[in-house]
């Protein structure tokens, strides 16, 4: 319900950090406590079509979607992923579009991923910690540890049945480029007050979900998400950043021939 407010605050947190010129406690790539790939059995990791949004950012902060930019970025990111050495090495299976009831189910889980990733961005990456996630410790000098236990829920098992995947990779990127008015404002604020106005929004999340449980087993984001996904080279840089810290799956056992 306070989602819009939360979005504004999350954006503002980024803005505050940028304005202050101070790097926040960026966790970057994190794994669920105790996560390890099962050994000695084949693992299938599927990749859902990345959720890509590109638009322009007005002086007042209005984020206006741009269909042409979004289409170009979507194609470029998909191509960059398919040709990425990291992804080829991991032997990933890229999924196409779904139809009918399956498309609804995938979209619902994609939306859920965005919501969960937003929460993890705020409460893990940005360090806006939730006290209920604090791991109890009897040692008063121990460094505070917080559980990373977010999950999409066990309904993801249906995605496992539909795709045959054990794990699924979800990607979300959102870029909003400052329009001419915002650039003028940026120059004015810098020239007159030495203040910094962020030129735009560049957010990206990547996560791997255990489809049996819905648990987020790997999450990655970067506050300084680089690369302009509207061009092929920029998309490659973006994909490389999104995949930073991706837990490399074990070498798949080869079938023994009779």
């Amino acid at each position: 319900m306070i989602r819009n407010l939360l979005r504004a605050v999350s954006g503002a947190i980024v803005a505050v950090c940028l304005i202050a010129g101070a790097a926040p406690a960026v966790a970057g790539s994190v794994q669920r406590d105790g996560f390890a790939y099962p050994q000695g059995q084949p693992i299938k990791i599927v990749v859902f079509r990345p959720d890509v949004r590109v638009g322009s950012l007005r002086v007042g902060g209005l984020d206006e979607p741009n269909a042409d930019w979004t289409a170009a970025a979507r194609t470029n990111i998909q191509t960059a992923m398919e040709s990425s050495p990291q992804m080829r090495e991991a032997n990933l299976t890229f999924l196409g579009e779904f139809e009918g009831e399956q498309a609804d189910m995938v979209n619902e889980n994609r939306g859920l991923f965005e919501a969960v990733a937003g929460a993890m961005f705020q409460h893990v990456t940005m360090g806006d910690r939730l006290p209920t996630k604090l791991v109890a410790s009897t040692d008063p000098n121990a460094k505070k540890q917080y559980r990373i236990d977010w999950s999409l829920g066990p309904q993801t098992d249906r995605l496992r049945e539909v795709t045959g995947g054990d794990y699924a990779l979800f990607f979300f990127t959102h870029d909003s480029y400052g329009d001419a008015g915002r650039k003028v404002a940026q120059l004015l604020m810098a020239g007159l007050f030495g203040a910094y106005v962020p030129a735009g929004v560049h957010i990206g999340y990547a996560a791997m979900i255990d489809l049996k449980t819905g648990d987020v087993v790997w999450f990655n984001t970067d506050l300084a998400m680089g690369g302009d996904p509207r061009d092929a080279e920029g998309a490659q840089k973006r994909v490389s950043q999104l995949l930073a810290g991706f837990p490399k799956p074990p070498v798949q056992p080869t079938a023994v021939q009779p």
Binding site: V9, V16, G60, D128
Partner: peptide, 22 residues
């Protein structure tokens, strides 16, 4: 210029303090 900058500043989204949880 100062007036213009003040107008621009007023039109930019306000950045609230970092949230906190208890």
């Amino acid at each position: 210029n100062l007036l213009l900058a003040a107008l621009v500043l007023a039109s930019l989204p306000a950045a609230p303090a970092l949230a906190g949880w208890k």
